[in-house]
Design a protein around this nucleic acid. Structure first.
Lengths: 121, 121
DNA sequence: TATATATATTGACAATCGTCGATAACATAG
DNA sequence: CTATGTTATCGACGATTGTCAATATATATA
């Protein structure tokens, strides 16, 4: 609780700011945006994205696995989530699976995140 | 699986990109950043932030509650998470509790998010 | 074909999350 | 003091998440 300037008195049972307190972001937009942030809300996924973004189309799962602290099924699991979110894609080359970021999807995610955060003032 | 240009052949049991596959974001940084994204990973918290950012220090819980679809204890719960994350603060005025965004914390969050997302290329 | 390697999937488990009714804590009016 | 309105906390519940061993699937090599 931080101290602040005084405020107009008000009777109980009254709203303080009626119309002004409506969100400008709809429930649907908030839903969509929060799902985008969810994808980013795990350290392993952030590191996977980091590696993939810096090694354009050249990283196989075995190397991703080596770069992470978690075991192979867990890496595979997080890659699946990134794939389902659309921000990475993969290609099979023989025994190996190479993952790479979907640049348009990533750009779109960044734009949405920026727009929301910038919109906050 | 998207089709891509051909790749140098390689024997099984070999790494494809050794050193290059290291994350530039440390496990600790990833941990911290992912916690920031976690806060944003829920539609109600996004809408709360939205409302608070647009009504500088003037919104009481009763009005936040009226603006959300979830019940009062749930609103209180999400406000607590935002407070614990440091990006909002609150002040009690008599019976009412007024919430407002912590501008420095919000700016710092935005900077970290931007830095990571921009860093991806 | 048999074998070895790379990746994905399954299934189980503990841990965390989101929600809400009930209730506590607090402030004020009467 | 009592009653009423506001917010926070508690406790329970189902749902979701993260992890990994075990296993399946796919591919290449011998």
């Amino acid at each position: 609780m931080t101290s602040r300037a005084e405020r107009a008195e008000r009777a109980r049972g009254t709203r303080c700011c009626d119309g002004e307190a409506r969100p400008t972001v709809s429930a649907n937009e908030a839903e969509t945006l929060s799902r985008a942030f969810e994808v980013l809300a795990h350290p392993v996924r952030l590191q996977l994205l980091d590696v993939l973004a810096r090694n354009e189309g050249r990283v196989c799962v075995c190397d991703l696995e080596a770069a992470m602290t978690v075991k192979q099924p867990t890496v595979s699991h997080h890659l699946k989530l990134l794939r389902e979110a659309g921000i990475v894609d993969s290609e099979r080359q023989g025994v190996w699976a190479y993952y790479f970021v979907n640049r348009e999807a990533l750009e779109s995610l960044r734009k949405d995140a920026d727009k929301f955060l910038d919109g906050l003032g």
